[in-house]
Amino acid sequence: MRTLGDLESAIMDRMWSYHRPASVRDVLEDLRQSREIAYTTVMTVMDKLYKKGLLKREPQGKAYVYETVGTKESYTAQLMRETLASGGNQAATLVHFLERLTPEEAAALESALQVFPPRGGRP
């Protein structure tokens, strides 16, 4: 899974925020609040996101209605796993990552580990 380009990210952020299916026109109108953009550009990018497996779609009349396949958090987690797997020494990568955590991020990690403790290892 590759990271998203600027427009792909803007579209996915909107799709994740909707929590419902949306048409190209819905996304276009939302995007036009902050930039000038063509319908065909949004349609093309949403088709690419569909082909990448990030959006699913259902026909509605002559167009499609799109919906996210997963949450933003699950997408981010997958990117993190792939990055860790490609980083060479996983232990060293994790140490460098942990060294850079803000207090808020460290607290979030501690909370996550309470919900889902590491497998294997410690009792």
Rank of each mutant, 00 (worst) to 15 (best):
S23V: 05
L101S: 09
A91Y: 11
L79M: 15
L79E: 03
A91M: 13
V27E: 05
G121K: 07
A108S: 12
P21Y: 08
V24E: 06
R20A: 15
M1R: 01
K51A: 14
L94Y: 04
V115H: 08
L98V: 15
T68C: 08
G88E: 10
L98K: 05
T40K: 00
Q114R: 14
G5P: 01
F116M: 15
A77H: 05
I11A: 00
R20E: 09
R35C: 05
A106S: 15
A10Y: 02
F116E: 13
E58K: 07
T76W: 05
S9Q: 07
R32Q: 14
Q60M: 12
S17P: 01
S86Q: 11
E105W: 02
T71L: 00
P117D: 12
T44Q: 11
F97Q: 01
M80T: 10
E82Q: 08
G61R: 04
R25A: 11
V42K: 00
I11E: 01
V95Q: 12
R100S: 12
Q78E: 11
H96V: 08
L28Y: 04
Y66V: 05
L101V: 08
P123Q: 15
G70W: 09
M1T: 12
G88M: 08
L4T: 10
L113I: 15
Q114C: 06
T44W: 00
P59H: 08
A22S: 13
M12L: 15
T44R: 14
L94R: 04
Y75T: 04
S23K: 04
D13W: 02
E67K: 03
A92Q: 13
A85E: 14
V42R: 01
R25E: 13
L54F: 08
F97V: 11
A10F: 01
F97G: 04
L84H: 04
E36N: 06
G53Y: 09
E29S: 04
G120T: 15
M12P: 02
R119Q: 10
V42C: 02
P103S: 12
G5S: 08
S34L: 07
T93N: 12
D47H: 05
M80K: 04
A77R: 02
A10H: 02
L98M: 07
K48A: 09
Q114V: 12
H96F: 10
L101E: 11
S23P: 00
G87T: 13
E36H: 06
A85R: 12
K72Q: 15
K56R: 08
A106P: 00
D26T: 10
M80V: 07
Y75A: 01
V69C: 04
A22C: 10
D26M: 05
G88V: 10
E99F: 10
R14Q: 08
L98I: 10
Y66A: 03
Y39C: 02
L109N: 06
S74V: 07
Q114H: 12
Q78V: 13
Q60H: 07
N89R: 10
L98H: 05
R122T: 15
R119Y: 09
A91S: 13
M43D: 15
G121R: 13
R100H: 14
E36D: 13
